[in-house]
Structure formats: structure tokens, C-alpha cells
Deep mutational scan, measured.
Amino acid sequence: MKVTIEENEETGKFTIKVKTEDGEEKTIEIPKENLEEILAKLPPNVEII
């Protein structure tokens, strides 16, 4: 699983794009305050880009 994290400076939010092993892609946008909480919940086999 690969996770790409991009900061949107205009909105102050982060866009998180997840690509699973089977090629499925999902995108979510979260507030900056929630980034550490989300990262802590990721499984250890995740590659963060």
C-alpha cells in the first residue's frame, strides 16, 4: 500500500491519496490538526510518499 500526502497551503488541509496492492485508489482531505492521528493509525507495511 502506498500513501501520498500533499499539503494544500490555501485551505490548510492535507490531501491523502491511498493506492492499495490491488490498484484501488482513494483520496481524502483532512485538517492539518488530524494528520498525526491519521498517521498513527496506518499499518506498518505502508509506504509513505
Rank of each mutant, 00 (worst) to 15 (best):
N34V: 14
K19P: 02
P31S: 15
D22I: 04
V46C: 10
K17C: 09
K19T: 15
I30K: 00
N8Q: 04
P44Q: 09
A40H: 06
T15N: 04
N45C: 11
G12M: 03
D22Y: 10
P43K: 05
P31L: 13
G12T: 03
E24F: 12
I30H: 01
E7F: 15
G23C: 07
A40F: 06
P43D: 05
T20L: 10
N45I: 05
T15I: 14
T27E: 07
E6L: 10
I30C: 13
E33V: 06
G12Q: 05
D22K: 07
T27Y: 12
T4L: 07
I38V: 10
E47M: 14
T15C: 07
E37S: 10
D22M: 07
T27L: 08
P43H: 08
G12S: 04
E37R: 09
E24H: 10
D22G: 07
N45L: 06
F14W: 11
I48F: 10
E7W: 15
T11H: 04
G12C: 11
P44M: 10
T27S: 07
K13E: 07
K2L: 08
E36N: 11
T20K: 05
N8R: 02
N8D: 08
E33H: 07
E37A: 12
I38K: 01
K32N: 04
L42T: 01
E36T: 09
K41I: 07
A40I: 04
V18L: 11
L35W: 07
I5Q: 01
F14L: 14
E10S: 10
L42E: 00
E9R: 13
K26M: 14
T11V: 03
V46L: 05
G23V: 00
L35N: 00
D22E: 08
L42C: 08
M1D: 02
E47W: 10
K41T: 11
K26W: 15
I49A: 04
E47D: 07
G12F: 04
K2N: 05
I28M: 11
T20W: 15
L42Y: 06
T11M: 04
E37V: 08
I48K: 03
G23E: 03
P44F: 13
I16C: 06
P31F: 14
I28N: 01
E10K: 12
N8W: 02
F14K: 02
I16T: 00
E6Y: 15
L42Q: 00
I5M: 03
I5P: 01
I30W: 04
L35P: 00
K13Q: 11
V18I: 15
L35Q: 00
K17P: 00
I49E: 06
L39S: 00
E29P: 02
F14G: 01
N34Y: 14
T15G: 02
I49P: 03
E24T: 10
E25I: 12
I49Y: 08
T11W: 04
I49M: 09
K32D: 03
L39G: 00
I49R: 04
K17Q: 05
I28V: 08
L35Y: 04
P31H: 11
K26P: 01
E24N: 11
T20D: 08
T4G: 01
E25V: 12
V18G: 00
E24M: 11
V46S: 06
K2W: 15
K41R: 13
D22P: 01
N8F: 03
V18M: 13
T27A: 05
T20P: 03
I28G: 01
N34G: 13
K26F: 15
V18C: 15
I28K: 01
T15F: 11
E7D: 05
E37Y: 13
T27Q: 06
I30N: 00
M1E: 02
M1Y: 10
P31N: 13
I16R: 00
F14H: 03
V3W: 13
I49T: 07
P43C: 14
E6I: 14
I5V: 07
P43A: 07
N45D: 10
G23L: 02
E29I: 15
P44S: 10
P43R: 09
P44A: 09
E21L: 12
T11P: 04
P44R: 08
P44I: 09
K32Q: 06
K2D: 01
V18R: 00
E36H: 13
E47R: 09
I5T: 01
E37C: 13
K26G: 04
E24Y: 12
I30Q: 01
L35R: 02
E33R: 06
A40W: 06
K17D: 01
E29R: 05
E6A: 06
K17M: 07
K32L: 07
K17G: 02
E47H: 10
M1F: 10
E10A: 11
E29S: 08
F14T: 05
E21N: 09
E6H: 09
E10I: 12
L35S: 01
K2M: 11
L42A: 01
P31G: 12
E21D: 10
K19S: 08
P43M: 08
D22C: 12
P31R: 10
I5A: 01
I48T: 03
E21Y: 11
I28Y: 15
K13H: 10
P44C: 11
D22N: 10
E29Y: 11
P43I: 07
K26S: 12
E47S: 09
E25K: 02
E21F: 10
E7H: 12
M1P: 06
V3E: 00
K26C: 15
I38R: 01
E7K: 09
P31A: 13
M1L: 09
N8E: 03
I16H: 00
E21H: 07
G12E: 03
T27R: 06
K13D: 09
E47F: 11
I28L: 09
I28F: 15
K19G: 05
E37N: 07
K32Y: 11
K13N: 13
K32E: 03
V18P: 00
K2S: 09
I28C: 15
E7G: 05
E21G: 10
E36F: 14
K2P: 02
P31K: 10
I49W: 06
E25C: 13
E7S: 07
I49V: 09
E24S: 11
M1A: 06
F14Y: 12
E25L: 07
M1N: 03
E9T: 14
V18W: 15
T11R: 05
K17L: 07
I49K: 05
M1S: 04
T20Y: 15
E25Y: 10
V46R: 04
I48S: 02
T4I: 11
K19R: 10
L42P: 00
G23Q: 03
E25Q: 05
L39M: 06
E36C: 15
E33A: 10
I38M: 11
I5E: 01
K32M: 08
K41M: 14
F14S: 04
E24Q: 12
N45W: 14
F14R: 02
I16K: 00
E37F: 13
T4S: 07
G23H: 02
I38A: 07
A40E: 06
E24A: 07
N45Y: 11
K26T: 14
E7C: 15
I48A: 02
P43T: 06
N34A: 14
I16W: 03
T4R: 07
N8T: 03
